[in-house]
Design a binder for these strands. Structure first.
Length: 556
DNA sequence: AAGTCGCACAACCGCTAATCC
DNA sequence: AGGATTAGCGGTTGTGCGACT
C-alpha cells in the first residue's frame, strides 16, 4: 500500500526542506510547540530517523515531548500518527491480501466505520490504511454498480445477528460478541437509543440492534443500492412517502433491492430468504413487542450511514464520507420522479434545516430505534384506537374503516404533534422509504418489468399531492400502488404459487409477527381488502424490515 | 507532448475520551 | 471536582503518479 512511500518522501525532500510552514492551528500546537515553527506535510527520512530514535529511547507516548527531546519540529500529534502509521515495527506494507480484504469487508459489516477497531483485527495494518482502502473500495464498487458487501458476508451477518439477538439479552458487550464470532453492536448505539428513551414517548424498550441492521447501514448506502439509481435524492422521496405513510416509511432505503429480488423470485425460497423465516418461526419465548424488537434488521439506521458510532439523531447529518453520496449523481434522480421545485425545496430543508428542525429531530427520534419499533408503537396505538372505535360504534367498522380510522388518525394526531406529519422515524427515515418508491416505480398499472425498475418514474403528481395534508387521507389508495410493497404484492400474487396461498402465507406471517391481538386485525384488513392498500401498508412495515435478510441472500 | 482526470496514499483537522494534576 | 493535557478516532484534504485523451 505504501510501498512507494520512501520514494515519494525522497522525491519531496527538497520541497519539504524549503518549506517550513508554521503550525497554524491549535490542534497540533500543544504545549510543545510554544510558538516554534512546526513542520507540516510529508515526513522526510531524516525526520523518521529522529522519531525512531526517540521512540527507541523513550518509548511510545508523550508525543508532545518529542519535539523537546529530539529537536524534531513536528507536533506530537503528527509524531504519533507517523509512528503509528509508518514507523512502528511489524507494520505490514503493501497491498492488502485477499484474506485481509475479506476480513475488512466482514469487519466493516460488523462495525461500520470503526477503523481503529478494525485495525485491531488486522495485525500490521493501520486504521488509516483500512480507511483509505475502504473509501477507495466504496468508490470502485459504486462506479461498477456493485453491492458493497458480497452476499456471503450479508448472510453471515444475518445468521449471526439472528442467533445473537435470539440468544443474547440486550446489549451484550462487544467483546462477548466478538469472541463468539458474532457481530458486534457498538455500545454507543445502545447508549444513544437509551438516551432517547428518556425523552421520547414512543421509543420502545431497547431491543437488540441486529448486526443485520448494522450491516444494512452499508447495504442501504447508495453504493449498495446500485441496482437502483445510486445516489438517491432522499429529500425528494421523503416527501413522496411521508405524506402517505408517515409511520411506515423508515429504513426502506436499505431495503429497496428486496423488491427487485422479489420480482425475480417470489418463490417460497425467496420469501424465506428475506425474512419469512422470522415471521413463520417467531421466537416463542418472546411476546409481541419483544419479537418485534428482536427482529433482525429492525434497526437499520435510517440515514444509510456507515458509521456505527452514531445513529444520527439529526435528520440530515450524514456521517458517511462525502464521497459516498456523490452529489454528481443526484441529477439522475431528477429525472426519476420529482419536479425540480419540490426537489429544491426539500434540498433546502435538508441542507439548511429550519430552526425547528432540531425539535423535529428530537421528536422524531424513534426512528433511531428502528422501523419495527415504530410499528409496534403504531400497532399498539392502532389497537387502542380500534378499541376506542369499537367502544363508540361497535361492529360498524369494516376492515377498511379500521384502517382508515386508526392508522391515519394516528398519522394525523400523534405524529403531527411533532410539528409536521412526519414519521416517528424522521426525515431520513421517511426518505429512505421514498427512495424505494422512486426506485420501484410509480403505480401498479405502470409497473415496469423488473429489468426496467430502476428506470421507472414516479409521477410527480403523486409527490406533489402528497405534500398537502388533505390528500393524505386519500393518498393511501392513490399512492398505494406506488409503494414497493404493493408492487411486491402484485408480483407476488401473480406468481404461479397462487394468490391464496401466498396471501395466506404473508398474512399469517405478519399476523404471527404482530401477535394475537393485532394479528386478527391485520388478517381482517388483509382479508377485507384483498391485500388492500391498508393491509399492505401494514404488511409492508414488516417487509420493509427484512432487507437485511433479503439482500443478504438474494444478491446477485 | 501536453493537459486532464482519477486513484491511492499520506497527512492534517476537528472532535472527544481518557488521563493527569 | 474541574481544568489542562494527551491520546485516539474518524473525516477530509492535499499530493504524486499513472492512465487517458
Amino acid at each position: 500500500m505504501s510501498h512507494t512511500k520512501n520514494e515519494r518522501e525522497e522525491g519531496m525532500l527538497s520541497k519539504d526542506q524549503t518549506e517550513l510552514p508554521l503550525i497554524g492551528d491549535g490542534s497540533c500546537g500543544g504545549g510543545a510547540g510554544g510558538g516554534v515553527a512546526l513542520k507540516k506535510g510529508p515526513w522526510t527520512s531524516a525526520e523518521d530517523a529522529i522519531l525512531i530514535e526517540y521512540v527507541k529511547k523513550h518509548g511510545e507516548g508523550n508525543w508532545n515531548a518529542v519535539q523537546k527531546h529530539s529537536g524534531l519540529f513536528r507536533c506530537g500529534k503528527s509524531c504519533r500518527l507517523r509512528w503509528a502509521n509508518h514507523l512502528r515495527p511489524n507494520l505490514k506494507k503493501g497491498a492488502f491480501t485477499q484474506e485481509e480484504e475479506q476480513l475488512i469487508i466482514e469487519l466493516h459489516a460488523k462495525m461500520g466505520n470503526k477503523w481503529a477497531r478494525m485495525a485491531a483485527h488486522l495485525p500490521g495494518r493501520t486504521d488509516n490504511e483500512i480507511k483509505n482502502y475502504w473509501n477507495t473500495r466504496i468508490k470502485r464498487r459504486q462506479r461498477a454498480g456493485l453491492p458493497l458487501y458480497p452476499p456471503e458476508v450479508c448472510l453471515q451477518a444475518l445468521q449471526v445477528s439472528h442467533s445473537t439477538s435470539a440468544v443474547n439479552g440486550r446489549d451484550k458487550g462487544p467483546h462477548d460478541t466478538l469472541q463468539n464470532n458474532s457481530y458486534e453492536i457498538p455500545d454507543v448505539i445502545f447508549d444513544s437509543l437509551k438516551a432517547n428513551q428518556n425523552v421520547l414517548p414512543y421509543v420502545p424498550k431497547l431491543p437488540d440492534i441486529s448486526a443485520g441492521s448494522m450491516l444494512m447501514k452499508g447495504l442501504g448506502s447508495s453504493q449498495y443500492c446500485s441496482i437502483m439509481p445510486p445516489a438517491i435524492h432522499r429529500q425528494k422521496r421523503l416527501r413522496e412517502s411521508m405524506a402517505f405513510f408517515p409511520g411506515y416509511t423508515a429504513t426502506v432505503k436499505n431495503e429497496c433491492p428486496l423488491f427487485e429480488q422479489l420480482q425475480d423470485d417470489m418463490s417460497d425460497k425467496a420469501a424465506r430468504s428475506f425474512g419469512l423465516s422470522f415471521l413463520i418461526e417467531p421466537d416463542p419465548a418472546t411476546n409481541n413487542s419483544q419479537s418485534f424488537g428482536a427482529f433482525p434488521g429492525s434497526h437499520a439506521l435510517s440515514n444509510g450511514n456507515f458509521s456505527a458510532s452514531e445513529p444520527s439523531f439529526e435528520a440530515v447529518k450524514l456521517e458517511l464520507p462525502s464521497l459516498q453520496y456523490p452529489e454528481t449523481e443526484l441529477g439522475n434522480w431528477g429525472t426519476l420522479s420529482c419536479p425540480p421545485p419540490l426537489l429544491e425545496s426539500v434540498d433546502a430543508f435538508i441542507q439548511s434545516p429550519p430552526p425547528t428542525s432540531g425539535v423535529q429531530s428530537d421528536c422524531l427520534s424513534p426512528r433511531n430505534s428502528g422501523l419495527l419499533d415504530a410499528l409496534i408503537h403504531e400497532a399498539k396505538t392502532l389497537s387502542t384506537a380500534k378499541n376506542h372505535a369499537s367502544d363508540k360504534s361497535s361492529n360498524s367498522s369494516t376492515p377498511d374503516d379500521i384502517a382508515e380510522s386508526s392508522i391515519f388518525n394516528i398519522c394525523e394526531t400523534e405524529w403531527e404533534n411533532c410539528g409536521e406529519p412526519l414519521s416517528p422515524m424522521g426525515h431520513s427515515a421517511t426518505s429512505l422509504f421514498s427512495e424505494c418508491i422512486s426506485a420501484s416505480g410509480s403505480s401498479l398499472d405502470e409497473q415496469p418489468p423488473a429489468e426496467t425498475f430502476t428506470e421507472s418514474h414516479v409521477k410527480s403528481e403523486s409527490a406533489d399531492r402528497a405534500l398537502t395534508p388533505e390528500v393524505q387521507k386519500e393518498a393511501p389508495i392513490q399512492l398505494d400502488n406506488s409503494r414497493p410493497d404493493t408492487l411486491l404484492a402484485s408480483n407476488w400474487l401473480e406468481q404461479d404459487s397462487g394468490y391464496n396461498k401466498d396471501q395466506t402465507i404473508m398474512t399469517d406471517a405478519i399476523a404471527t409477527l404482530l401477535g394475537d391481538d393485532l394479528s386478527s386485525e391485520y388478517k381482517n384488513m388483509a382479508a377485507g381488502t384483498s391485500i388492500s392498500s391498508q393491509a399492505w401498508g401494514l404488511g409492508s412495515c414488516v417487509w420493509n424490515n427484512m432487507p437485511a435478510v433479503c439482500q443478504m441472500s438474494e444478491l446477485p
